[in-house]
Design a protein around this nucleic acid. Sequence first.
DNA 1: GAGTGGTCTAGACCACGCA
DNA 2: GCGTGGTCTAGACCACTCG
Lengths: 232, 232
Amino acid sequence: MKYRELARIVKADIDRGGFRQTDKLPTEDQMMEQYGVTRYCVRNAVALLAELGDVYPVQGSGVFVRESKREGCMNISSTKGMSAEFVGHDISSKVLSVRQREAGDDATRLKVAPQAPLHEVRRLRLLDGEIFALEWALYLKEFVPYLSKDIARGSIYSYVHDDLGLVPGFADKVMYARKLDADEADVLGLAAGDPTLVVEDDAYLANGRMFNAGTVCYHYQKARFFNLADLK
Amino acid sequence: MKYRELARIVKADIDRGGFRQTDKLPTEDQMMEQYGVTRYCVRNAVALLAELGDVYPVQGSGVFVRESKREGCMNISSTKGMSAEFVGHDISSKVLSVRQREAGDDATRLKVAPQAPLHEVRRLRLLDGEIFALEWALYLKEFVPYLSKDIARGSIYSYVHDDLGLVPGFADKVMYARKLDADEADVLGLAAGDPTLVVEDDAYLANGRMFNAGTVCYHYQKARFFNLADLK
DNA sequence: GAGTGGTCTAGACCACGCA
DNA sequence: GCGTGGTCTAGACCACTCG
C-alpha cells in the first residue's frame, strides 16, 4: 500500500510546515522522483489528502496546502470515535447502563430480525472532565459477542475494531437540532427545552453489514462539527 | 470524461432498479465489456458512486448497491444550493436585504483586505411555502460583480455558477446548535430561546479562492442533514 | 481454487494556468 | 508555449471472499 504510505509522509511534511513557503506541494513529476514511486502512487496519495481536506489540486497550476477550521470541531465524516477526534484531550465516559436484549422495535433500524440479540449502552461522554454528550448505542451481538460496563468506560470503537478485529466500512449520519426533555437536560447539566444537536449514526462494516446504531445528544454549547464538502 | 459519464449511466440504472435482484453491480470485467471501456473508467466511476453513497465495493466479493436514508434530508457534503437538494419541491426566498459594503470585520473570515467590497444578502428561505431557514451571506464583489434583490429571489448558486461561470471547488462547513434570539425567532416563526441548527459555510472556487461566506439558521423542526462517512 | 476488487507499472494525450 | 494536473490505455500481480 504504497500510496497510503506516501500520503502519510506528505501529511507529516505538511504538519511540519514543510511547504509553507509556497503553500504548494512539489509537482507530480518531482514527487515521483523524490519518493521513487510512479504517478499512480502520487495521484492516489494526493487524492487521499484532498478528501481529508489537507490539500486541493488545481489543474494547470499545482497542489496547494489548505487549512480548514477544524479547531475544537468534530469531523462529521469520520467513523472513528470521539477519542480519535480529540487527541491530546481527556476523553472519558460515565456508563449509565449496559444491558443485553432483543432488537424488538429497533430491528428495522438495524435491519435484523426482532429476535436478534444486541447490547444496549447508555453513556455520558466527557471531554476534559466536562459533560459533552449523552449517548445511546446498540451493538449487534452477532458482531460484538461481549460488551461490559468496564469496556464501555473506555473507547468502544477501539475495542470493537482493534480488539475484536471488526473492519470499519462506512456510516450514515443524520443530524438535527431539537429541544431536550427534562431527563436529558438533567444529565447534561442543562434545562429542559434547551437546544441539543442530535446525531443519529448507523455504522457498517466493510462487508456492508450494519453492526451498530446510535443516537447522540450533544451539549449545544460545547459540540461543533465540521465537514469538507467537495464539488465532484 | 468517460468515467463520469459511466457513473451517470450506472446511477440511472440503479435508480431504475436495474440491479435489484442481487443488489450487486456487474463485475469490473463485465462492465468493461458491456460499456466498451477500460478498467480505469470502471474503477473511477465506481469510486465516484461510492463517494456519493450509492454503492460500496467489497474486495473479493463485488460492488453492492446501498440505499441511505436521505429522505427529506439535506446532504452536508454538497456545495450546491438548496434548490439542488430538494428537486421536485418549491424553493423560494423572501429577500430581506441586499446591500453592498466593505468587508470590515468580516475580512478575516473572507481572507481579504478590510476594504474589499462585497454583497451582503439576507434571505428567508422557504420550502414548499414554509419557512425553512434564515440566511445571511456575503459574496466578494471581486468574483460576483453584480447582485440584486431580483437575483436573490431565485437561486444565487445557479446565478453564480451557471450565469457568471464561476467554477465551484469546495466548502468548509461548521455546524452547531444554539438558541434563537428574539429577532431570529420572529422571522422564523418560532419563540426566542428555541433551538436552531446553525451552519457556517465558507465556499471556495476551484482555484482555491474563497468567494462566499454565509451563516444559515435552520428551523429546528424542519431541517435535517445527512452525511455519509467513509473509513479511508 | 476460481473469481473478485485493490494496487501498481509505464507509458500516452488532453485541458487548463500562467507568464 | 510551457508546465501542471486530468484522463485514459493495456497490461501485471496481490489480497480477499466464498463455495
